[in-house]
Design a protein around this nucleic acid. Structure first.
Lengths: 142, 142
DNA sequence: AAACTATATTATAATTATTCTAAACTGTTG
DNA sequence: CAACAGTTTAGAATAATTATAATATAGTTT
């Protein structure tokens, strides 16, 4: 259970003003045992369910992007119509369960280190992401 | 240089009626030396530049999805606001050049085979995709 | 090849995700 | 506690995609 004062401190350090909206969003995102995968829509729904006062959707977008830019959230590459974010910002990969569109962490040591033998000339590798798409074993194939 | 009659045959076999729109789209997509990465918008632009008659955007969407469902195109996972497709449907990976949002094939033998040690229970692995995000070496970091 | 039927195309409207805007508001600093 | 800069907000704007419903076309049957 993280205290509000800790969030305030974190935000200050990052140069983000600790507004009450940002603090509520911090509570929702970071007061958890496990890492949390979400879309903006998921987050907006949780907030509107849990809170008496509303937070505008634009603010949720702004805040999530601010947190991402400061490195507190990671954006995950899935081919989809929406963006997924992850509170686990360490270097790791993902399973994507196609049955319910759910993202699941894939421990780094579940996959041997990925070594790119030849990179594009003149470019620097910013990230290497592995996405393992899975679905029910008994599912009919299309 | 693939002949129209071959496209007609391919479409027939797949249970797709070889309409003139679909044949034009086949020409644009599959009469190429190298594999082709594109968004719907890219494709629509090429078609409207190259053709005298227009093909409706809805038809382009329908056709691309039909081709994808028949396995002639692959959809690629990039976190982005639009979908990318690939005429190379073999098992391979991608570089994504963040400088110009360009997708580049990554030869399969450029990365050692990826072995998932522990899979999610009760699920079957449908695909494993690696996305290597790169950018100019001299780029300022954000 | 005319008629028929199923499928495809089209323009347009609808939907969904996201960003922009401009006004009102609120933390922070002096 | 006043002033300023950074934030929030509702709503408009944009962009990608999907749905709709009328029209057109391909393949098949006569």
């Amino acid at each position: 259970m993280i205290k509000n004062s800790e969030f305030i401190e974190k935000l200050r350090i990052s140069g983000l003003r600790p507004t009450k909206q940002r603090l509520k969003i911090c509570e929702v995102l970071f007061n958890r045992e496990k890492t949390f995968h979400f879309t903006i829509n998921d987050l907006a729904k949780i907030i509107s369910d849990r809170l008496s006062e509303k937070i505008s959707l634009a603010t949720i977008y702004n805040t999530v992007h601010a947190f991402k830019n400061k490195g507190y959230l990671k954006e995950i590459s899935i081919n989809s119509d929406k963006s997924y974010f992850d509170t686990n910002t360490t270097d790791h990969h993902h399973f994507f369960d196609e049955d319910n569109s759910e993202l699941i962490d894939c421990d780094k040591d579940n996959i041997d280190p990925i070594n790119i033998k030849k990179n594009i000339t003149g470019k620097k590798i910013n990230s290497i992401e592995v996405l393992i798409k899975v679905a029910s074993d008994n599912q009919t194939q299309n």
